[in-house]
């Protein structure tokens, strides 16, 4: 699944110190549930992103354990506090061992 996996993340570039921001993330992934069968009746093996994390300067904002009931092209929205200038790091963990990351810098004014 490593090809065509492309995160899409919205983080403002600038905030006031200690301000709360809303973060939205989307990533392209089929999230094959393991419940479906192919045309020959064989089970299509599960292949999902099983964990999503967001950290800021190394400290955790959110850490989500994901199951096959999460829809194709997973979406998350959540709120974070920004105590200082730094970088958000977003990480998606694929069943197949691949890890997709995205970094967004943010400046405190």
């Amino acid at each position: 699944m490593a090809e065509n996996v492309k995160p899409r993340v919205r983080v403002p570039r600038e905030v006031a110190a200690g301000e709360t921001i809303t973060i939205k993330t989307l990533i392209s992934h089929k999230m094959e549930s393991g419940q479906r069968k192919d045309g020959d009746g064989n089970v299509i093996p599960r292949s999902i992103i099983n964990r999503f994390t967001c950290t800021f300067n190394g400290e955790t904002v959110i850490d989500v354990q994901m199951e096959p009931a999460i829809s194709t092209n997973p979406f998350f929205e959540f709120d974070a506090v920004v105590p200082e200038s730094g970088a958000f790091e977003f990480t998606w963990y694929d069943d197949d061992g691949d890890v997709y990351t995205e970094t967004k810098e943010i400046a405190v004014s």
Binding site: K6, R8, S28, N73
Partner: peptide, 16 residues
Amino acid sequence: DDFDNPGMIFVDQGRD
């Protein structure tokens, strides 16, 4: 909102 619209993932791929 373009960060809610999953179709925009594929716009990004088109832009690539």
